[in-house]
Simulated scan of single mutants.
Amino acid sequence: MKKIIYLHGFLSSPLSLKAQLTIEYCQQHYADSIQIVAPQLANYPEQVAEQLAELFEDKQNILGFIGSSLGGYLATYCAKQTGLPAVVINPAAYPYDLLANYLGEHQHPYSKEFFTIDDSFNLSLRQFDVTKQELQALKISVWLQTEDETLNYQEAQDKYQYNELNIQAGGSHAFDDYIEHLPAMLQYLFNSQA
């Protein structure tokens, strides 16, 4: 059985709507062939790096990655590290710039853990960065909605300009009508296998 790794966004969880819809859809349609692995990502970048490294140890059984928002940024890194395809949904192109506006202590809404965002946190996030030039060699399908209230979709449109772009007018950061597009997203992962 092949695995698809689902990576959630900032202050999110495997219990988020998109993660749950992905799990449920694959259980209904690919129960014998696909398992969705959706880890609860740690709050600090260094711990996330360790989590991802552990996932890569099972590379031969991974079909690809799906990531939303900050998870899209991380899924891009995963694609670079493994050579496997990724689908990124309203990805954070430069999260370390965005989170510069979130300095201070936060409580994770799902885990209830407290953590602090500071300059070193954002500097550590840069370890996952993939340049526009590096992206050209990667198999990545990018899904953007223009009315994303959290991220400027044009940043991702520019960064991923050499990848497959699916841009929809309207929508939101949560990616409206996600379940309707999930079959095409999964098909991209299936079709991108070497």
Rank of each mutant, 00 (worst) to 15 (best):
L98K: 08
Q51Y: 11
L189V: 06
Q35K: 09
Y178V: 02
G9Y: 01
E105N: 11
Y160E: 01
Q187M: 12
H29N: 13
S111N: 09
Y102K: 13
P109L: 10
P109G: 09
S172D: 12
I23C: 06
G72M: 03
L55V: 07
D129A: 15
E149D: 10
Y162A: 11
A19I: 06
A53L: 13
P39S: 03
N152V: 12
Q27R: 14
H8D: 02
D158K: 06
L55K: 09
P91Q: 03
L182Q: 08
L21A: 14
I36L: 08
Q60K: 15
E46M: 08
Q127R: 15
Q81S: 14
H29K: 09
K59G: 07
Y110G: 11
L125N: 08
Q157Y: 06
A79F: 01
F128Y: 01
G64L: 04
A19G: 07
F114A: 12
E46Y: 00
Q107M: 12
Q161M: 12
K18A: 11
A79V: 03
L144P: 06
L135H: 09
I62R: 02
E134V: 10
E164T: 14
N163K: 13
K132L: 11
L84Y: 06
M185Y: 08
S68G: 04
I167R: 03
N163T: 13
L186E: 00
A93R: 02
N122L: 12
T22C: 08
Q35L: 15
L182T: 06
E134R: 09
G67D: 09
L74A: 05
Q133E: 15
F175E: 05
P183N: 08
Y30A: 07
Q27M: 08
K112Q: 15
N152Q: 13
K159W: 05
D97Q: 14
Q27S: 10
D148R: 05
L11Y: 02
F175Q: 11
K18P: 04
L144V: 04
L21K: 15
Q47T: 11
Q107S: 12
N101G: 04
Q35V: 14
E134D: 13
Q51V: 12
Q161I: 12
Y153H: 02
H173D: 08
A174L: 14
L41C: 05
Y102S: 11
D118I: 11
Y102V: 00
I36Y: 10
P91Y: 04
T22D: 04
Y25A: 07
L135G: 10
Y162C: 07
Y6M: 00
E134G: 09
A49R: 14
N166W: 01
A93W: 01
I89D: 01
E147K: 15
V37T: 03
T116I: 14
I66E: 05
T150G: 00
L21H: 08
K159S: 05
F115T: 03
P95A: 00
P45L: 00
S16D: 12
E54Q: 15
A93G: 00
L125D: 11
A38F: 00
Q127D: 11
L182G: 07
L125P: 12
F10G: 02
Y25P: 02
G64I: 03
L70P: 00
F115G: 05
A156H: 01
F65S: 08
S16N: 10
S124A: 14
